[in-house]
Write a protein that binds this DNA or RNA. Structure first.
Lengths: 221, 221
DNA sequence: CTATCATTCAAACGTTTGTTTGAAACGCCC
DNA sequence: GGGCGTTTCAAACAAACGTTTGAATGATAG
């Protein structure tokens, strides 16, 4: 019965390191110490295995997000919730959960970011569906916390915040390599505090009216 | 001689739609109307073709970034440049250039984001090297525009800004699909104004001191 | 102990892949 | 216009892939 779990662990590590397409089932099953056919027996296909791998890590994070949001809204009562606690409910679960997994957590974030950007049709669909409730709940809460902003602006800024989070978690650009000053490793709570400060301020920015003068474009009309 | 250009166009479209691994040279060459072996004759390998594809679009953008930054710094003279123009010099070139390419521009952004996250060792190295000068120049300018922030904080916030930009350009989450309100298509200058407002405000956030009390973590120590 | 189910295993299947090869076609200069 | 370097072409190569198969093995219940 732990065959399934062994496959999941090996698949997680391999998918994260190599990417979905480059990761072969032969490598995964060898790493797990199980037979090649076990993947199809237990999961059905390589794509379904990816889906299971992602869900195992993402489901608890999204659940905790909603729980935290429940708590924030309950504390606010009938009043509008404050902005920062709402954002913290969104950002803290993935940052803390992945940090708790150490180096493996970074790989997992990398994997999820990959699926987010690339990914076959099916895994991406699963990922997006997975986010539907989360996005809708948080969009509502942010709208109440920022009543001066139109709903459309709220959604776009939430998307920006997701971009920051994804980027930070996946450590995508490996900016350390080219940074003019050395960037020390920092613990999860410091990361969270930094990201929270940035996103909170960004969310509170005055609504940008569309303006044509700001850009002296070169190639745009 | 236009064989090379035809291959580049076809490769760009195919890589962007399918991803590097899934895009086969047979599809690319068929789309370009050239012989399969032409790729190796003109580029050497599939990976080198990806590299050429990315460079063709990214080089002009990074060049324009530096030119704009030159102009901003020249206008400021000996004084510190203002924050927003610096950020605009960073954000406007990719947003406007890709928008000028229409639907294809979105695909290209998607492709670059992919390489950024996944990517073989070599293409990613190229991408990172490509950014070295840009990151260093902008980190310096941002440091002068925000003298109250330590250099490390500057770099991290620049990384956050890159995350926002990458996410917006690549339209990664296809958040439209799950948005509670319909999100209208917007032109590039509106997008730029929105992103600029968000990132400018985020950059100006008060420096977050590491604090342990903010997070009542569930799984983290 | 036997029958029945779930699980594991080695082997093979058919496809597709990036790459290589050697000859054919082309364009250009003297 | 013959010769030469560049470019194109069809064909083949070996390797790797996800998936399937059918028998062997294990555990469970009657």
């Amino acid at each position: 019965m732990d065959t399934k779990a062994r496959i999941l662990d090996a698949a997680e590590a391999t998918f994260a390191q190599e990417g979905f397409d480059r990761a072969s089932l032969r490598v995964i099953t060898a790493r797990a110490g199980v037979n090649l056919a076990a993947v199809h027996y237990h999961f059905g296909s390589k794509e379904a295995l990816l889906e299971a791998t992602v869900r195992r890590r993402l489901d608890p994070v999204n659940r905790e997000r909603l729980e935290r949001l429940d708590a924030v809204e309950a504390a606010a009562g009938a009043a509008a919730p404050a902005l920062e606690p709402v954002l913290e409910a969104f950002l803290a679960p993935p940052i803390l959960a992945l940090a708790a997994l150490g180096e493996r957590g970074r790989l997992i974030a990398h994997l999820i970011a990959r699926v987010y950007f690339e990914g076959g049709v099916e895994p991406r669909r699963v990922l997006v569906e997975q986010f539907r409730e989360v996005v809708q709940r948080f969009a509502g809460a942010l709208g109440r916390a920022l009543p001066q902003l139109p709903p459309e602006e709220i959604l776009r800024r939430l998307q920006y915040g997701i971009g920051v989070m994804t980027h930070v978690l996946a450590d995508a650009p490996q900016i350390h390599r080219i940074a003019p000053v050395p960037l020390a490793e920092e613990d999860a709570e410091t990361t969270l505090a930094r990201v929270l400060a940035f996103v909170t301020a960004g969310m509170q920015a005055p609504a940008a009216r569309p303006r044509a003068s700001v850009a002296r474009a070169s190639a745009a009309r």
